[in-house]
Design a protein around this nucleic acid. Structure first.
Lengths: 208, 208
DNA sequence: TTGTCGATTGGCCCTAAGGCCAATGGCCGC
DNA sequence: GCGGCCATTGGCCTTAGGGCCAATCGACAA
């Protein structure tokens, strides 16, 4: 059940809390990294490490919600669980709207915390699977020459080689060649597969 | 800004609250329907009416959260806003996890309520656009004969007519005919478009 | 200057997709 | 039993997609 490779990033200005939670999680097989301030966490954070973050809401200078905003602002999808001693409903709602996995109050039961973490780690794993696939598609797309990329956007729009040629001011034969290279470089064998790849990665068919 | 056709479903066991909110919303151009119990709402609810629901959390017999569960259990995507006098964080978090648009506490400011409703109505509008498109696709798919549906799942998998024929134990010519009818009935002109339709409606390419 | 790469194009040939017309056979409701 | 719908097929022909080989041209790096 517990994901072996998962690391839990703990951020709380109370070192005692960090120690206690860290001990609990390590006993359950998680790796932990602790930070006593949002700033410290942001500066040291390595998004390539699988796992989730547990943030204290109220911290001096830079609170948990702001930290969450900062993460999403830089496109970091790290799943976040909040932990708070003195929270209120508006704060919890804001956190959940911003995409938090859970919002727990101290003192938290071990079961509740572990359940939230297990879920967050699961979400992280799924996010990573999706984004590694998207990255792979985008990497292949980036290796296409500019002309090939252009041809591809027309192909996934369902256009005929003849029509694409007209659009690009060239002849059908040329499009056939580009098209063949697109299929090869994108590693697909049918237009149907190419369309699905493009949809996943957000590559849009060319309009006109 | 305010969507003219939107109806707000108000559910609260306090008739005074219903009256007050209803008056406020009507003054802003919304239509309102009021219910003094979850049961009454569930029984009378018409999901075809655009708009959102504002639910009181604590009601006798059948509370707001249960009502929300009941709605999602029957596939009703009606956007829900909670309003509560005596709520706590775990309740708000549960509501948000279950997909609530917002969770407000009484007394609520007019601005906050109106903003939440405007957002919920917007979400509802978007949901309706998406589902009407999906419904249209499924309706067309349902009009295909069984054989045509089968052929379509192979076509969107990117298979050649010849391969499909082998799979279905028939000849290529027959598949060409079915395929032509699929394109016509689904109202698309290219395989690329067909693939996109299928993706939107969740029609999966046939595996083997 | 030479080599490489990307964009283009021609010719030749083969496979795939599809339109048109016609016909057969099974199943079902009127 | 007949008409209609669905599934199938054949023949014929046209258009579209693509592989293989070869060649030209311009830009850019070694």
């Amino acid at each position: 059940m517990t994901d072996p490779g998962a690391t839990i990033f703990l951020v709380d200005d109370d070192a005692g809390v960090l120690r206690a939670i860290s001990r609990l999680l390590r006993a359950r097989g998680y790796d932990t990294l602790t930070f006593t301030s949002s700033r410290e966490f942001l500066e040291a954070h390595d998004r390539s490490i699988p796992g989730c973050a547990v943030l204290d809401v109220s911290m001096p200078d830079f609170d948990g919600l702001e930290l969450q905003q900062a993460l999403t602002a830089v496109g970091n999808q790290r799943p976040v669980i909040f932990l708070t001693g003195a929270g209120d409903i508006p704060t919890s709602v804001r956190a959940m709207k911003a995409g938090a996995i859970d919002f727990l109050t101290k003192p938290v039961s071990e079961d509740a915390l572990l359940a939230a973490i297990a879920h967050a780690v699961q979400v992280d794993t799924e996010n990573r699977q999706v984004s590694s696939e998207v990255d792979s598609i985008n990497a292949r797309f980036a290796r296409l020459t500019p002309r090939e990329q252009e041809v591809m956007t027309h192909v996934i729009a369902g256009r005929l080689n003849k029509q694409i040629a007209g659009h690009l001011g060239t002849v059908e034969k040329t499009i056939k060649v580009h098209r063949g290279r697109v299929m090869e470089k994108m590693a697909v064998r049918s237009v149907a597969d190419l369309v699905r790849l493009a949809e996943k990665a957000g590559i849009s068919p060319r309009k006109p």
